[in-house]
Design a protein around this nucleic acid. Structure first.
Length: 426
RNA sequence: GGAGAGGUGCCAGAGUGGUCGAAUGGGCCUGACUCGAAAUCAGGUGUACGGUUCUCCCGUACCGUGGGUUCGAAUCCCACCCUCUCCGCCA
């Protein structure tokens, strides 16, 4: 959520910033509604004051044994007037809030302008795509030939967009997760967390998935439904919900491995083959809580932590800064890390690292006490994948494939592979 | 799932429906005393929103959440949520 004060005091500037995303903010009707709010709030609070004053004098009169009936008669209609004003005020406030919850975050100045992913700016590349002196296979054929990746079995159990893995391949994914967690916890200063995979709507409102993107989520049928988390960002970021941190407690770096569940509504036809886009996938997530002034620097650090994983795995990648038309709803700035996939001869997203500034914090009431003033103020949140395990597995398979269809185990993963140095058919 | 107890400020813990944003104690901050510290004494110590003559002041809201009764609710009524104890079940 954008600061409502800023929204009404610098409406034109906000609208101009949001326009860079292609978002049309109707400033005029917002300001009209805001003027209504102000008038109604003043009216309501004046009436409340009147009620409080007269209730007090009635109390005093009664204590002195006076007849309070005339006093009661005098305020007879006050309750009705107050109820009416209050109801109008609530209505306008709800309207304003729903507008505010639907506004994306303000973009950072250095976000490149553009309509879609073609305008994303490449920041740097690392590694060189490997040369193969044989015809490369994609991860689907590789997995099938190994007998370790079975989409038919998954379809019989759960339908499309699920995968079953067996043996060394299943273990390789687990090794990736262990490796990533160990690097982040042991070397990058993260605290490992274990969090719920089912959350209630307010958590998703906090991180920004709701109310706008309900169709991307799986939901239970309970009266108060649970949602399956689309990313660990949701439960982990909400650890700051309604909390006030002391300045010395920040920065706080948290990591978690969780499965992620996405309905992928509207993505029919995209990446239908293979493990690129699934209803369920594993991911290691990185989350930072930082003081308001520190988030720009924290984004660079968080991104470098995700990059380090690909470097250790010796997977070529490039880093892009998402343009104004491609960047996510709540982010002020986002770096995507794209890993090289020989099977597609393309760089594909494997991590997305974003600075949310105070956007999520305002929704969650996540604050930090200012070291100088002692007053609580909204902290800044960031998150990024460090990295998506399912896609990392694809990348390892395709980049480490050998002519006979076997797959070499990257050195970085060997500690978790129990002596297995290659995946090959039984 | 059954039975019971309870949810009040940073913590503990009061609160016959009326000046309760909330006693008291602890903690914390400031000051006095002291060479310094301890002890003692005095004062202060929530958040959000709004108004404003905007480093002051004023108003409103908040005692688990949401409704209701009332001129007036932390206090009464209803529903829900959560925590704890015991029983049952279970990984």
């Amino acid at each position: 959520m954008i600061d409502p004060k800023l929204l009404r005091q610098a409406t034109a500037e906000v609208a101009a910033n949001l326009a860079r995303r292609g978002f049309d903010f109707d400033a005029e009707s917002y300001l009209a509604l805001e003027a209504q709010r102000k008038a109604l709030q003043v009216e309501t609070e004046t009436l409340q004051n009147e009620r409080n004053q007269s209730a007090k004098s009635i109390g005093k009169a009664k204590a002195q044994g006076e007849d309070i009936e005339p006093l009661k008669a005098a305020v007879k209609d006050l309750g009705d007037r107050l109820a009416a004003a209050d109801a109008s005020l609530k209505g306008v406030q709800d309207e304003l809030r729903s507008i505010e919850l639907g506004l994306p975050n303000l973009l950072a100045d250095d976000v490149p302008d553009g309509h879609d992913e073609d305008a994303n700016a490449e920041v740097r590349r690392w590694g060189t795509p490997g040369e193969f002196d044989f015809e490369v296979q994609d991860h689907i054929d590789l997995g099938a030939a190994l007998g370790m990746l079975d989409f038919d079995a998954a379809a019989r159990i759960s339908g499309a967009r699920f995968a079953v893995m067996r043996g060394g391949l299943a273990r390789l994914q687990r090794a990736l997760i262990q490796f990533m967690l160990d690097v982040h916890v042991g070397e990058h200063g993260y605290e490992e967390t274990y969090v719920p995979y089912l959350v209630q709507s307010q958590a998703l409102v906090g991180t920004g998935q709701l109310p706008k993107f309900e169709e991307d989520l799986f939901r239970t049928t309970d009266e108060n439904p649970f949602y399956l988390i689309p990313t660990a960002e949701v439960p982990v970021t909400n650890l700051a919900r309604e909390r006030i941190f002391e300045p010395e407690q920040l920065p706080l770096r948290l990591t978690a491995h969780t499965p992620c569940f996405r309905s992928e509504a509207g993505s029919h036809g995209q990446d239908t083959r293979g493990m690129i886009r699934q209803h369920q996938f594993e991911k290691v997530e990185l989350v930072h809580f930082v003081a308001p002034g520190d988030s720009a620097r924290a984004l660079e650090e968080l991104t470098s932590h995700a990059e380090e994983i690909l470097k250790r795995l010796e997977l070529p990648y490039r880093l892009v800064s998402l343009c104004s038309g491609d960047i996510g709803f709540g982010a002020t700035k986002t770096y995507d890390i794209e890993v090289w996939l020989p099977g597609q001869q393309k760089y594909r997203e494997i991590s997305s690292c974003s600075n949310y500034t105070d956007f999520q914090a305002r929704r969650m009431k996540a604050r930090v006490r200012n070291a100088e003033t002692g007053k609580p103020e909204l902290l800044h949140t960031l998150n990024g994948s460090g990295v998506a395990a399912g896609r990392a597995l694809i990348a390892v398979k395709e980049n480490y494939q050998q002519e006979d269809g076997s797959i070499r185990v990257p050195d970085a993963l060997k500690p978790w592979m129990g002596g297995i140095s290659e995946l090959r058919p039984d």
